[in-house]
Design a protein around this nucleic acid. Structure first.
Lengths: 235, 235, 235, 235
DNA sequence: AATGAATGAGCCTTCATTCAT
DNA sequence: GATGAATGAAGGCTCATTCAT
């Protein structure tokens, strides 16, 4: 009993969506073709028929779900381009966090797994997708520095603000994922993404100000000198 | 031709170390016993002889490399307990980042992989190892708030400062791992861990001040109202 | 080069039959999947494809060969239900012995191996299959006692008549299996199953009569008293 | 820390005894050298040191436990050679059954496993041990026939009386072995070996009489003719 | 386009046996 | 005589992929 369709598009899409979910949940290596096809309700052989290989499906499915994800949560968070910079800053941060936090979205889960356990298969496609967003965000930070920051300060600040956004989201995703993994005491019992985003914005605006005109320069002495200095970077 | 050793401890340690490297590089599922034993230069069956199973080796090897790691980089960063709080803050952050950045250390790589793709095997042992450090750090942040912060503010701040530290380190580890041009395109060409740590401290101290007495409350209007509000939290 | 079949049933049956033979010959633990698949002429992985596991194949194959066996030798031996009890007695005994003796049948070999070396995997399925036959036979014995026997006498008699049937069959199976000179040194050179069955019936009918009205009670004295009395039964 | 002994005899015996128990419980293939040595409290390598191989240990251990067994329960059951034949008959049967039923004895368990699942390793040694007992018993049966029975009648009778003794013992051993395997409704709740032995003797004496002078010849007609006649014996 | 069957490579584990001490 | 460590050969099972239909 074959489920014959007009063309393969329906099957293709079912596979792309199912693959996104399974890859996001289990990662590339633990996910099996059988898993994916079962969830998609199609025959196992169709992955190779439509995509040629598991690797290809992996790439295609990430592109697919990332596109859906970015459509649902545009990068600017809906803030007009002529709004004050703080508003746009808040908009981008909130949008990013909402995109990650939405349990229906899986693109970030896969990115995270790729960072932890790279297959290398998504390197190029993720870079292409993320780079524009990244540069957008970085120029916004540069704007917040109001042309007073060095390049290095901007880069560092960019990196650590991204860390502020992603870090807590990892815990949130874990807490969402399995009902068993302890959310830990870290999460206040009643918090919203908006609240956290506002905390980050407030914290970071003050942080940037602190970088721009250090109230008191961070004391170099007396103990800091003692700190060991093991890892500079690979020669 | 049998390679006989004085006692099994030598082999045990070789396996623990090799396992740490391989698990850190490939993750639990991609790592094969053959990989590990080849790197340790021993017979495949010895994993089961010495540890009973791959799972057990995984747990034991993480405990082993974490202990080495924490010995090399003590949590306080060498700052005495009676030093000013800012010094101790810097000490903990630098120590944490150095511990992660050191290419000879693999404990964090495994933690990261566990967060992205949990096997569950390390849940208990990691929690036992990390919890004290975590609470130490959190009480330090509470101290920085000088009893003025709410519980939620402290928790949020803790979470995002951890994010500041880890976020950049993830990119650094990737840059170290692959043949990518070190220290990765994301990093300024002449950066050091100490420099970044100092940036984080300066940024965060200002951020905490900003949270404690907000210069101007973050503008709620007019655009913020437009922001969508999708994900609160699962009840 | 793939050997494609109309449907999997052909392969399934080939595996069930081959498994029956191999399990009967070697027992569960000595039998290897490779053995079975080689005999069935199929790929090793097909056991897991069709049955999920070696254990499952074991159970399914026993059910399969037992069904074939009982179809070939119905329990009543072809004697109508209204025939005299002695005829039905003979019928059941002969049928049972023929079923065991037939070199094409393997269900009893497996039962015997399970009794000697239980895997436990067939416990339920064998019990379900054997119980009705057993009760049938026991009620027949009760009928032969003509309501004069105690419950214990009936039970004992049932047990030892079964022993009469099985005991010789075990030797016969061994003689069939090995290159031993058939029908084995234990057997008269010109014996037939029917002849042995008739011997058992004649012997047992007399035995039952002897139990019902003991000609002379078995002498208790004088030596019997000397007999040691080690094993009563575990309390 | 080596447990040095004067000579290996102590270790040898410990291994022989432990091997007997383990082989009896698990059979040759499921029993592992590690099992046996653990129970004997000695090092794994000693099996090969003292016996050369697992196979050899198997043979030696059976000889060892059989000797112990036959010493404990002499074949004649303690009945003098000049006692009446019925007494001696009873003596041999009871002795045989007690030897099997004694939970401290394992020789029969191994014999049974060898019959069900022959390794072939014990063929010769068992035959040598059993043959004298067998011939003894057979000549006793011949005596009971009082020179009236044909050779075939004596052989058949011998075989089925052995079956009477062994059959019930198999159930008993199973019931003794694991507390979980259902003893089944077959066993009267309160029975003793002596009682059962007496039942067998009474039954068999009557049976032999029935063979010698059949009260009424077993009816050949009308149904017996219908009985199928599949398995004569292998050509 | 779609399916179920089939394949082969590879993984973790077990275990009798051997070796150096 | 005794020990702990080490070895290598399977064995059961998984899974991406291929093939005939």
């Amino acid at each position: 009993m074959k489920r014959q369709r007009i063309d393969g598009q329906e099957t293709r899409q079912a596979l792309l969506a199912a693959a996104g979910e399974v890859f996001a949940k289990k990662g590339y290596w633990e996910a099996t073709n059988a898993d994916i096809c079962q969830r998609a309700g199609v025959n196992t052989a169709l992955i190779n028929y439509h995509f040629g290989s598991k690797e290809n499906l992996y790439v295609e499915s990430w592109k697919y779900i990332f596109q859906k994800s970015i459509e649902k949560y545009p990068a600017d968070g809906g803030i007009p381009a002529d709004a004050p910079v703080r508003e746009r800053f808040y908009g981008q941060i909130l949008s990013m966090m909402q995109r990650i936090a939405d349990p229906a979205n899986h693109d970030f889960d896969i990115i995270h797994k790729e960072m932890a356990n790279p297959t290398g298969l998504l390197d190029e496609v993720i870079r292409e997708a993320i780079e524009p967003l990244d540069q957008n965000f970085q120029s916004l930070i540069r704007e917040l520095f109001d042309k007073t920051g060095t390049e290095k300060q901007v880069t560092f600040t960019h990196m650590i603000i991204m860390g502020q956004c992603f870090g807590p989201m990892l815990h949130l995703r874990r807490a969402q994922g399995g009902g068993d993994s302890p959310p830990g005491k870290k999460f206040p019992p009643d918090f919203t993404i908006e609240e956290l985003a506002r905390h980050i914005v407030q914290f970071s605006l003050a942080g940037i100000s602190g970088i721009r005109k250090p109230a008191r320069s961070l004391p170099e002495a007396p103990y800091s000198r003692l700190l060991r200095n093991h890892c500079k970077r690979k020669p």
